[in-house]
Every structure is written in structure tokens, then in C-alpha cells.
Simulated scan of single mutants.
Amino acid sequence: MTDARAALKYTAFADAPGGGNPAGIVLDASQLGDAEMQAIAAEIGFAETAFITEQNVAGDDRRVRVRYFSPLAEVPFCGHATVATAVALAQRDGVGDFVFETPVGPVTITTAAGDEAITASFTSVEPSVEPFGEGVLEALLGLLSTSLDRLDPAYPPRVSFAGNRHPIIVFADRAEFDAFSFDPGAMRSLMNEQGWSGTVTTVFPSSASEYDSRNLFPVGAITEDPATGSAAASFGGYLRALGLIEAPAEIEITQGSHIGRPSRLSVRIPEAGGIVVTGTASPIS
């Protein structure tokens, strides 16, 4: 019987020692039911744990079926746990391409041996962008104790999808971006009501090609996510869909400094198709 003690623990997207987003990884969950996977994820306590529920899909030993659980519920997709799992598989089976069959569809991950660590690049599912529902933006801004006139007018608020739905809010003022706070319980209630299974993504543009992000993810003892691959992909899709960047393009997203876990995500935005997010991952000792 697999339990939390048998799970691997990796951190993904670290930009400094002690940085990155930790993920649990169960490389063989073929005998685990939903309740058992949920219990393991809750015991580990990280934002997400990835479970490989089927090896050798369609006879391909580089294609596996993966499910993701937070401490509270299953989530459709998780970028940092995808990167961490791909690196763990590459360390075991060799670098190259993997395909993860996920609840949102197949996701291709390319792993490569870098100078100091294995890198993993996943290509998201096709992104899409939609406006907020009536009254929802106002409710969200109220929880952040801000208002529409305090956001950057060049970046209209939208809900973006690239595996999970992420509301995207871009602040005009760095000090306000750094200092805002929120009630975790009220935020979780709004997220559940709206079906936002990922994070609430808040952003400040540091330069034309670098963005600082705070991703709100109230679950258990967690309030902010240190590094969010699905949000990075969603933000790349948002920039392209709204014509805020000329594709193809590459951007960097920094995250996690507000909670002491500095992270960096590299994002490649092609002219069409899925968004590519790249990072490293390493075992947590």
C-alpha cells in the first residue's frame, strides 16, 4: 500500500536555495483509489501531489496517465507538479519527451540535461480567455481591497484558461501589489463558487519581458502559491489573445518572493497553440 512516506518530494521552478514550489510525486498509483490519493495529498500537505495512475499508456513507456490532488480536492492540472514529475521520470528513465494524459487532455513535456539540473518544458493545452461574469470582478477586487481604477489600464482583467481557469489582475502600482492582503476563507469561497481550480493570479509588470506575480491559493495552511506553471501558461495565453505581446515571444515570470520561496518560470508564447513553460526541479532532502 502506497502512503505519504513513499511519495517523492521535489521543488520546482526554484530561483534560489529554499525557493520553488514543493510537490509530492507518487510514481506508481495504479492500485490507489480516489480516497487514498486524496488522503496522501492531505498528509503531504503541499499545494499539489501528482499520481501516476497508469504506466505505458497505449504501450508507450514514455506516456503515462497523471492525476493531481491538492490537500482538499482533485485539480484538473498542475504545472509545477508536472515539471517535478517529468524531472523525476527523466532521472529514472533518461531525458527526452514524455506525454502526460491528464484530466484536461494530453500534455507533452520535453526534458533535457542542463549545465546544473534537468529542465522540463511542458506545452499547455490550447488557451482561451473570457471576461468576468457579472459582479464577479467587483467581488474579487473587493476581497483585495482595491478597485478597477487602481489596475494597469493596459492589461484588462480577464479569466484565462490553459489547463485551469485563472482570473488575472494586473496592478498599476508596485507598492500596492506588494502590500495587498486578503481573507483566505472568503477568497476560497469565491474561487469555489466560480470554479477557479487554479490560483487567483495577480501581476505587476517589472519590464517589457518580465512580470512579477503573486498567485493566491488558499488551501489548508497555504495562502499563496510560490510558483504556478498553469498560471504562467494562462498568462502567456492572455497576453497573446489580447494583443499585448507580439508572438512569438519569450517572457520571464518571477514569483514566490512575498512568501520567502523565490521562483522563476520561463514562458514561450508561440504564434498559435499551447504555451510552453520551462523550469527545473530537484529533490527535497
Rank of each mutant, 00 (worst) to 15 (best):
A117R: 15
S128R: 09
P218K: 11
A249V: 12
A227M: 01
R5L: 07
V276A: 00
A120T: 14
A232Q: 02
T280E: 14
M187V: 03
P76S: 05
V219L: 06
F171I: 01
E250C: 04
P131M: 12
E134A: 15
L140N: 11
D60S: 03
A41E: 00
L239G: 07
P106W: 04
A117D: 15
A175F: 05
A12T: 08
S230Q: 10
V203N: 13
L239P: 12
E48A: 08
V125D: 12
L144Y: 11
R165K: 13
A249T: 13
A73I: 12
P153T: 03
A113C: 10
G273H: 07
T102H: 02
L137A: 11
A247P: 15
Y211T: 09
N215E: 14
L151F: 14
L265P: 00
I52F: 05
G96N: 11
G220K: 01
T102D: 04
A58V: 03
R165M: 14
P156W: 05
S206F: 01
P248I: 12
A12K: 04
F171T: 06
F204Q: 09
T2L: 09
I25Q: 01
P248Y: 04
A39T: 06
N56C: 12
D60I: 07
I259A: 08
E193C: 08
E101C: 10
G20M: 00
H166R: 10
T49A: 05
Y211H: 10
G96P: 09
G195I: 08
L265K: 09
A247N: 13
I251M: 02
Q55Y: 04
I52N: 10
F217K: 02
F132W: 11
T85P: 00
I52K: 03
A272T: 10
G19N: 02
R158E: 14
A117E: 11
Y10C: 12
L140M: 10
E252F: 00
Q55G: 11
R261D: 06
S209C: 05
I222H: 01
E43M: 05
A281Q: 13
S128T: 14
S145G: 06
A154Y: 09
F98C: 14
P218N: 03
G18I: 01
A272N: 14
V75D: 03
I245N: 06
Q55D: 06
R62E: 13
E101Q: 14
G105P: 10
N215K: 07
C78W: 00
I40N: 11
T2Y: 04
M37F: 03
G220W: 00
V136Y: 12
L244V: 11
L244S: 08
F171Y: 03
S209M: 07
L216A: 04
E130P: 13
A233M: 01
S213T: 07
G243A: 07
I168V: 13
T223F: 10
A249R: 04
S207V: 05
A14R: 02
A47T: 02
F171G: 05
